[in-house]
Design a protein around this nucleic acid. Structure first.
Length: 356
DNA sequence: TATTCGTGGGA
DNA sequence: TTCCCAAGAAT
């Protein structure tokens, strides 16, 4: 049903909505890719990746036929790499089980890997014109302020409250535009820190704005402190100057990406004894640890790392993969072909700078 | 249900 | 510098 809220919002959206590549002609594949990339990621960050991706993998069949290596390379830097792995898997399922066409039904969409309640609603409403609500960070913030939602939005109770509000205010027949309008409003006007209430089309009906309480909403349960780990990594070279890269398992942090092997320092260990132990545990071999290559700091979502990288050589003839999926001796100039997380990419770059 | 999963930009 | 947090999903 149309209502005051949706009328104001849709009218604002017609004038102020962002122009985005997948909005020109919202085809299911384009909308799907944009939604997966945009999970926990700002659109300004997404845009260059999205353009490159659509060039590399212009349709579902091309994506399904690509190698995981190519897919992860295209995703490198975006983070949350299970999104890329699941996207690749889902493309295969769509080709094999859905005749190559993304299903329109939100329940079927949600059965695909990487598509949850939000993304199913987004694709169904934006690409297929279904009357389905969405709830993302923007929607949570907007509704929490409009109606003074007291439950913290990062709890199941708070999320449920927002989903109910989103469903209740959805205008029939215009869900796609309404959902995108809500998200644009959250991203452009109803900002977390300094909302621009005078510019907001919902100012007149917003309880938080009327009561001067936008700073207190949405309520949030505080997150626990993040630990800080000291980590080591080995840049192991052979007699040809190639370096040993190892590929991390699936379904772990940075799953499927390549790295310089190593790991967390334990109590009472020196950096070098830590590195020798980690290499023994992961590769069943002994290394000679040489000079330090550098110190790299990086902050993940739930912990921080200071990584000490060392040059090293194998002291034993062979090694064995006790943790990783694969290992490869790689000439430094070819390191770019292997998808890596940020911190290992920093090591690789320094290596290439040193080499030449 | 709580935790785990990246990275970059802005305050 | 540090903290927040952004078109969430999976386990």
């Amino acid at each position: 049903m149309p209502n005051a809220l949706s009328n104001q919002l849709l009218s604002w959206y017609a004038d102020h909505g962002r122009s985005l590549p997948w909005r020109e002609r919202p085809e299911p594949y384009a909308v799907w890719i944009s939604e997966i990339m945009a999970q926990q990621t700002r659109l300004e960050t997404v845009l260059p990746y999205y353009r490159r991706w659509m060039t590399l993998f212009p349709d579902i069949a091309t994506l399904a036929a690509a190698s995981q290596q190519d897919v992860l390379n295209a995703w490198e830097g975006l983070g949350y790499y299970s999104r890329a792995r699941n996207l690749h898997k889902a493309a295969g399922i769509v080709v094999r089980e859905h005749g190559g066409q993304l299903p329109a039904d939100p329940t079927r969409l949600q059965s695909l890997p990487g598509i949850g309640r939000y993304t199913a609603g987004a694709v169904a409403s934006i690409a297929f014109g279904r009357d389905e609500p969405v709830v993302d960070g923007n929607v949570k913030r907007v509704y929490a302020r409009l109606f003074l939602v007291e439950e913290p939005i990062n709890t199941p109770q708070g999320e449920q409250a927002i989903w109910s509000l989103a469903a209740a205010h959805l205008p029939a027949g215009q869900a796609g535009n309404f959902n995108q309008a809500l998200m644009d409003l959250g991203a452009l006007v109803c900002l977390p820190k300094q909302p621009d209430c005078p510019a907001c089309p919902l100012n007149a009906i917003c309880l938080a704005a009327q009561q001067g309480k936008t700073g207190a909403y949405p309520r949030k349960k505080p997150r626990p402190e993040v630990p800080h780990y000291t980590v080591t990594a080995a840049v192991i070279r052979d007699q040809h100057g190639q370096v040993l890269l190892t590929q991390r398992p699936e379904n772990v942090l940075l799953g499927g990406l390549w790295e310089f092997p190593g790991g967390k320092q334990e109590a009472g260990e020196t950096l070098k004894s830590c590195l020798k132990r980690e290499i023994r545990e992961e590769l069943a071999c002994t290394i000679d640890v040489h000079e330090a290559l550098g110190i790299f700091r990086h902050a993940y979502t739930h912990f921080k790392v200071t990584l000490h990288a060392f040059h090293a050589r194998l002291a034993t003839e062979r090694f064995e993969l006790l943790y990783h999926q694969a290992a490869r001796w790689v000439p430094p100039e070819l390191l770019d072909e292997y998808p890596m997380g940020k911190i290992d990419r920093m090591i690789a770059r320094q290596l290439q700078d040193n080499t030449g």
